[in-house]
Design a protein around this nucleic acid. Structure first.
Lengths: 147, 147
DNA sequence: AGCGAGATTGACGTTTACGTTAAGGTAAGG
DNA sequence: CCTTACCTTAACGTAAACGTCAATCTCGCT
């Protein structure tokens, strides 16, 4: 944080600070800039990240966690600050939104199904584990703790 | 389907049939076999896929849609048919389950947040679109259809 | 026996998403 | 002024997940 920044309330970040905060490498952030996902201010050659850049990076990383490619992420984040534009553009945007929504809904269903199956596997594992630590407590036979 | 299969009720599939059904290429299925995710029966050199192979492929593709790597998918599907094994193994399995669950929960949250934002973008887009097709219906002024 | 559709195993190519040097520039503190 | 810590571009490297040939082989049918 520079002197003048601490004076007013306009916090900025260096590439390293953002990298640390979001647990990615600076290389990753530069790569995203290369791909047009970020466009931080420059002072000389140095990058200066403002709050909106931070938000955008968070969006990008969320897209990444969801499993979207850079190209798909680009399209999504571009939606956020699209100019109102003309009717054709808006209809295209609405189409894109429908596509993304379908993808996300599918992924959500996949995740729910997988979570349910994890529950089942865990239940069986706990059963097996109980059957190992306690000696064969089959058919409801009570097992008293060892004295 | 072969003669004897149609006679009894034990439907099997060729690689091409499965590929068509799941909309992947045969190459993809062979790759998954190479990676140990599938192990179809062989008759001579030809692969014969049974119901359990089909189920397994579905699991693998679901993992892929969720965004897991082949390695992660392998660990997950291996959980399903893990032998009860010893206590140490079971505890490791429970650990793995916890890890996967955390990942999946994070992804689910990301998806929910993204869906919410898509809703918001769509709402704005529809507003803008309405403002374009109807001529500037500002401040509640009624807009009559053109004669 | 011959044909065409689809199957097989290599083996090399491609794209994505960064990692990893190399070779320096810069700002703050002592 | 010197060090230390961090920043810069440029360029090459790489692991994952297949795609894309090439060169057979095999089934089912006529």
């Amino acid at each position: 944080m520079s002197e003048s920044e601490r004076a007013r309330g306009v916090r900025t970040w260096t590439i390293g600070e953002l990298a640390g905060e979001f647990e990615v490498t600076p290389r990753t952030i530069r790569f995203y800039e290369d791909q047009g996902l970020l466009a931080p201010q420059r002072i000389g050659t140095q990058r200066v990240f403002h709050e909106r850049d931070r938000v955008r990076l968070a969006l990008v990383l969320r897209g990444r966690r969801i499993g979207f490619s850079i190209e798909e992420i680009r399209r999504i984040v571009d939606m956020y600050d699209a100019e109102p534009g003309e009717a054709g553009q808006l209809r295209y945007l609405l189409d894109q939104i429908a596509v993304r929504r379908a993808q996300l809904t599918q992924r959500a269903a996949d995740i729910a199904a997988t979570l349910a199956e994890l529950d089942e596997v865990e239940r069986r594992a706990r059963e097996d584990l109980a059957g190992l630590t306690r000696p064969t407590p089959r058919r409801g036979r009570a097992t008293r703790p060892q004295p």
